[in-house]
């Protein structure tokens, strides 16, 4: 058995604090399978009443953008302020937009 085989896979943990809100990434943990990952996520990340729902995803299943692409991907948006809806006047009754 190689050294890699003795290491449990890594899982990313997403916790929803209350119904209606979205699941937020809060960390990662090692677990042998999905069931264990969910239980350990509950134990590690919802100890202070943070959770009403938990998702776990194998970290190696996440496809991420390459940091080297940062300039190409994200910098061109810098000068396109018209994409922000800041030119509208909101009615007073709408709070916290």
């Amino acid at each position: 058995m190689s050294a890699v085989d003795t290491e449990w896979p890594l899982w990313e943990v997403f916790v929803r604090t209350k119904a209606g809100l979205d699941h937020k990434h809060c960390g990662s943990l090692h677990a042998a399978d999905p069931k264990m990952a969910i239980q350990l996520a509950r134990d590690v990340y919802t100890r202070r009443q943070e959770g009403s729902s938990v998702w776990v995803v194998r970290s190696d299943q996440i496809v991420a953008s390459d940091p080297a692409d940062k300039a190409m991907y994200f910098d061109p948006m810098e000068d396109k302020v018209y994409r922000h809806p800041t030119f509208y006047v909101l009615p007073k009754s709408v709070d916290h937009m």
Partner: peptide, 11 residues
């Protein structure tokens, strides 16, 4: 045996 289980047992 592992950190996560350590927390679970303490819980």
């Amino acid at each position: 045996p592992i950190l996560e289980e350590d927390i679970a047992l303490a819980n």
